[in-house]
Computed example of a mutant assay.
Amino acid sequence: MIVFRDPAEVPADFGRTVVAIGKFDGVHVGHQAIIRKVQEDARAIGARAVAVTFDRNPLEVLRPQICPDNVVSLDRKLELLGESGLDATLVLTFDSALASVPAEEFVRTILVDALRVATVLVGVDFRFGNGGAGTPELLKHMGLEHDFSVDVIGDVFPQGEGRRVSSTWVRELLAAGDVAQAAIVLGRPVAVSGEVVHGLKRGRELGFPTANLSETVDALIPADGIYAGWMTDHTTGVRYPAAISVGTNPTFDDVSRRQVEAHVLDQDGLDLYGHRVTVEFTAHLRGMVAFEGMAALIDQIAADVADARARLGL
């Protein structure tokens, strides 16, 4: 997938496009449905399938006091969009200058002049341009003048669920530790990637060594607690079963930040320092609690490992 960081980077001979516009935070099953429709429509007319998105949540500029955490980082979002099979993504820098662009100018300069759009796909609640004045209705009106059509995509509801898919729902599920339901809404397992760094090595002292992830990861971390899941070492490509801890280690109360630690099952001799890994959360086992003494903690960790093994079918 080609990534353009400015409309001026789109080649003049790029050809006609079918475009979906949105934040695409999390690239969840609702976004995936739109992307599939973009690809189908593009194939039908021999055009390019393109996403237009932003380098940050527009609320970070417009209303920072209510801006939520991103479900995934920008780099991870682009990875997921690339994996979907799109031809290109145009990432717009959302700053005060872009926020002030009138909706009509946004359509003319970006969709018409740069992307030579043939069809635009947006969600029912899509708004754009200065003051949010741009609506699907405005797009349809301008399409008559500039020779493009507009397809408004309805909400997506997971089977058996009465709630529409949204990034807000994903955040709520992660905050509750419900990684199983979040995986359904995302259309893939909940996972975070980062570099393995040195920690306090307390897990090794307790008989359960862990790989500690760096503070910077590429996705929103689920609620504090213990999880069953998997850890993939990007250096070797090996995927290991794991018991995963998220939190600040309340038994010792000497960890200043939330951290992700993965104890790889039956692989005590691994040296993963400096490796980039992906930790995948399969099932929530329990919440994070403080224990009275080392013996109680060790007994609980052993029980967690056994529970993780069972949840993973090992």
Rank of each mutant, 00 (worst) to 15 (best):
A242G: 01
L80N: 01
V170T: 12
G287K: 03
G131V: 12
I45A: 11
H146D: 08
R127S: 10
Q32M: 13
D147I: 01
L90D: 12
F157Y: 15
A228Y: 02
Q267S: 13
F252M: 02
R43F: 02
T168H: 05
R311P: 12
V150Y: 08
H31R: 06
E215L: 03
V305H: 07
T282F: 07
D233W: 14
R116V: 09
H141C: 00
R204D: 13
Q181Y: 03
N70K: 13
H275V: 00
L78E: 14
T93W: 13
P241K: 13
I153D: 03
F106G: 08
L206S: 09
F14M: 05
D266K: 04
R48E: 13
V152M: 10
Y240K: 11
Y240R: 06
I45V: 15
G26S: 11
L173N: 09
A51N: 04
R63F: 04
H198K: 09
H275W: 01
P11A: 13
V120P: 12
Q32A: 14
V120A: 15
V264Q: 01
V107H: 09
F291A: 02
D178N: 14
F4D: 04
V29H: 08
E40C: 01
D6I: 01
T210W: 11
F128Q: 10
R311D: 07
S167W: 02
V107S: 07
V150H: 08
Q39R: 15
G194Y: 10
V124E: 05
W230Q: 08
D55G: 07
A12T: 06
E79N: 13
S214G: 15
H141N: 02
R311W: 06
V279L: 01
G132C: 01
K140F: 09
T53F: 08
G203E: 05
A88S: 04
A223R: 11
W169H: 14
G187M: 09
V122R: 06
D13N: 14
Q159R: 14
G15T: 06
G46T: 10
M142K: 15
I2E: 11
I221K: 03
V19S: 07
I184R: 14
H284E: 00
L265N: 09
A97Q: 13
S193A: 11
T210Q: 10
L78D: 10
M288A: 15
F24K: 09
D224G: 12
G46P: 07
F157R: 15
I21E: 06
L98S: 09
A223Q: 04
A219K: 03
